[in-house]
Write a protein that binds this DNA or RNA. Sequence first.
DNA 1: CTAGATTCGGAACCGGAATTCAGGTTCATA
DNA 2: TATGAACCTGAATTCCGGTTCCGAATCTAG
Lengths: 210, 210
Amino acid sequence: MSGMATADTALRADARRNRDAVIDAAGALFAERGDDVQMGEIAQRAGLGVGTLYRHFADKQSLRAAIIGRRFEAMAELARSCAQVEDAGDAFESLLLGYLSEVEKDVAFRVALLSPTPAHWDDIEKQKESFSAAVSEVVDRAVTEGHLRADFTAADFILVTRGTIANMTEEGDWRRHLTLQLEGALTKDAPTKGAPTRGAPGQSPRDSGR
Amino acid sequence: MSGMATADTALRADARRNRDAVIDAAGALFAERGDDVQMGEIAQRAGLGVGTLYRHFADKQSLRAAIIGRRFEAMAELARSCAQVEDAGDAFESLLLGYLSEVEKDVAFRVALLSPTPAHWDDIEKQKESFSAAVSEVVDRAVTEGHLRADFTAADFILVTRGTIANMTEEGDWRRHLTLQLEGALTKDAPTKGAPTRGAPGQSPRDSGR
DNA sequence: CTAGATTCGGAACCGGAATTCAGGTTCATA
DNA sequence: TATGAACCTGAATTCCGGTTCCGAATCTAG
């Protein structure tokens, strides 16, 4: 029931240093180009030989898992910290925005978030749950205080963010999408935008985005 | 109407038959397992040798493009047909639901919809535009008649559907996500759920076309 | 029915990327 | 400092799936 993960196994000083270098290099590269990065490139960027990567990670898959794991860990951390924020609305907002802006920086993470979890990932499944729990806290509080529709849940948070993430591409502007979703998710007063419900005097159909 | 793409080039009878077989096989396989299907498997399922696939398509990429192209074509068709529906609300609803339920059946199509278009795809870009135009018609009409928020556009339709598609996975239930989005996108009455605000005519389990 | 062009089959070929491994090198302890 | 375990390197190897190639099989015009 304890130190199981990767950590403390008394590595030789240089070994640990190198392992970290690998993680950094891989993290950066994956974040930038997703999965299409080759082991050789990672090694190079870390200033090491490929063999070294394999001394620390069984295979590419494991390396990636380690990287993604970190991200999840960080997100769980973020969620926990947001759960401490006084105002429920602020807590929710900072979680939502914080999460998304973090995700925005990492292609590989995005891919991981959009694809069904690859089975053997179950140690990451842990982190996910931890994250989910914290999110739940924040969401529930926001619901209770009337910032979100009464039936909104942590699962919905995932749905909404996943949707937004799917629109983090060249053309599709995810903030717009988020707004669209929120103004339905947010409790009905929505001061954010001026979305007039009333009669619709002719609006010009040909109207480009912003 | 006009004969367009690759079609009628006077192929030997059996050749055309085989080509169709390839398209069917590939279509089914891609729809089921996305990109991780090998040429050999497609050939086998079509009851042909790999060589034959290459007689009809330059490479795997082209084959896939052909398949995806069909789907887009079909969607454009769907959109055009929905544009004919009398009631603007019904038109929008049937387009939205029709589109999504079609997409739901095809993994490869989903992937194509979520990933940035691979450059050389430009003949597909055509179909996309055609689709987009028809969607625009439907959407604009729905907006004018007050079924959708005034600033809703065809681009938003893409955002919303893409978001929904991203949630077409094992656990995440996309219908719920769609509801969440709609109740913000739809003009402000939304009584569907036990939301704290007032209510008006609903809109969730509507009828389906006529 | 026959010749010649088309099309088919599928084993062999290839390129690219992950993974291995046989030394050389570096750390840490006595 | 000396010594051996731990670690590193990177060329060689393995894997894997797309693509090619050409004799064999099939069509169709005449």
